[in-house]
């Protein structure tokens, strides 16, 4: 439904992907761990392989939990659909759009 306004009301999104150049925003949500109050938001290159994303961004964030174990395995999903990222997968390969939410639970 359009905004009721005194003149044309059309403004670009302030979070659109092009504002991040070759990068995009990705949310990672550790669903079964209330230690983290909310999902984390990362900016990462769209071409970044999954294994790099995991080790360079995700682990340093979540290992702040004193119970973090590097051996912990996780099951992943996007909007309720399970995904199994491979080391070389990009976000596009696993279906993670700009500002998408990747959920993980302890496997």
């Amino acid at each position: 439904m359009p905004v009721k306004a005194i003149s044309e009301y059309k403004f670009p999104s302030k979070s659109r992907q092009e504002l991040y150049g070759d990068d995009q925003l990705v949310h990672v949500w550790w669903k079964d761990n209330p230690w983290f109050c909310a999902a984390a938001c990362f900016r990462a290159p769209r071409a970044m392989p999954w294994s790099d994303f995991w080790s360079a961004l995700v682990v340093p964030f979540f290992e702040e939990d004193p119970d973090w174990s590097p051996d912990q395995q996780f099951a992943f999903s996007i909007d309720g659909t399970p995904v199994e990222p491979k080391a070389t997968d990009t976000f596009a390969d696993i279906g993670l759009v700009h500002k998408g939410v990747l959920a993980m639970v302890r496997a």
């Binding site: 979070s15 230690w35 909310a38 938001c41 004193p66």
Partner: peptide
Amino acid sequence: AGGRHFDRGLPELCSVCQIPML
């Protein structure tokens, strides 16, 4: 044990109320 829980990154925000999605 010498720690203090400070988040090391930024949270996902709601696009309307702008509160972290907690």
